[in-house]
Amino acid sequence: MTVFRVGVHITPRRGLLDPQGKAVEGALHSLGFPGVSDVHVGRYVVIETRAADAGAAADSVRGMCERLLANPVTEDFEIETAAPT
């Protein structure tokens, strides 16, 4: 068993109103970044987990996302490649 570090991006589902993203977008416009559009704010979770290999580590994190880390009704998640620590 090896310890892997796995990052996971959790973002609001596209199509759902994301007021936080909208507020950040407005602030960026007023800061002088007029080209900015479609801003979304999510969260990034880093997990260290023991697993036989990188695939098993990612599978395990997928289970964590489905059960706790992301809300299946409103959020999507993307798991980064697991790296041994």
């Binding site: 109103l17 007021p19 936080q20 507020a23 809300n71 009704v73 409103t74």
Partner: peptide, 17 residues
């Protein structure tokens, strides 16, 4: 109750933030 699946849907941040 929504998170537990006892009720459908989810409660998100107020639109006004």
């Amino acid at each position: 109750a929504c998170e537990a699946g006892l009720l459908p849907g989810a409660l998100l941040r107020n639109e006004s933030l």
